[in-house]
Design a binder for these strands. Sequence first.
DNA 1: GGATATTAGTTGAAAATGTAACTATCAACG
DNA 2: CGTTGATAGTTACATTTTCAACTAATATCC
Lengths: 142, 142
Amino acid sequence: MFLKGYLPYRLNLLAELTSENTQAIYRRRHGLTRMEWRVLVNLSEAPTLTASELCERVPAHKTKVSRALAALETRGWVTRRSDEADRRFAHAALTLKGKRAFNRIRPEMVAATEELLAPLSAEDRHKIDEGLKVLERLFGQD
Amino acid sequence: MFLKGYLPYRLNLLAELTSENTQAIYRRRHGLTRMEWRVLVNLSEAPTLTASELCERVPAHKTKVSRALAALETRGWVTRRSDEADRRFAHAALTLKGKRAFNRIRPEMVAATEELLAPLSAEDRHKIDEGLKVLERLFGQD
DNA sequence: GGATATTAGTTGAAAATGTAACTATCAACG
DNA sequence: CGTTGATAGTTACATTTTCAACTAATATCC
């Protein structure tokens, strides 16, 4: 079997399976796309971010970030202020409403993941972490 | 930082990063979608498969498999023959052209992945494998 | 200073995906 | 038989994603 040992396939499959549970939360329950959710998380971790910074951090193509920001702005969870010195930049930040929303959604996401991983021993979790860390180092994501 | 330690995010990000190289091969170079590529691989590993069997093996929803099969058939890489005994089933198989195509693409994919993983020691690779195996067991994918 | 090139971000059209409804075939039970 | 229900697969429509072109602002270099 070719695929079973093929790293990109294994990672993609596991990513999809893992996301099944959590997707239901941000999608169906809170009406967010994955990109909106990721942008929301990243904005929760910095006072303000430009679209370009978000592209790096999410990471994602600028069109996806642009549309996610527009959607979050429409929803009133994000505001954007164009930079005084260089008006090409727009600094996005969560509104109070956005912060509150994130604080509602985040624990649900954590709980769903915890439930998923519940059957695993500490040793198993450590193995997962070690494996992923190797890959993260490879991609300079650590 | 919430995301950095969050498993679904870590997996998705690594899957995306890993796929960047290989995607360029089946997409740009050979004009296949990811689903068409996956269906192609699975068909290369069995004489014939029905759409339902492919749904399980890929794994993917039946609409995606249906469309991937239709595209591969149009391209002349796949033929379908409806089952004599139960005409609801259609057995898909690679044509000679399809097999040749797969035999061209596969080594390119393997090479791209090898290149990606080249910097890693045997020990690192083992760690990755161990971690992924834990998750695969969790999802019953082993 | 003014033409040219870069950069940040948005928009529009085409491709891909997800969801649900649909067709066609077979099974089960009266 | 014939009605009802299940199953295999396709099609239709709405949403997302992708790719390329675009606008607006700044930087560069003569």
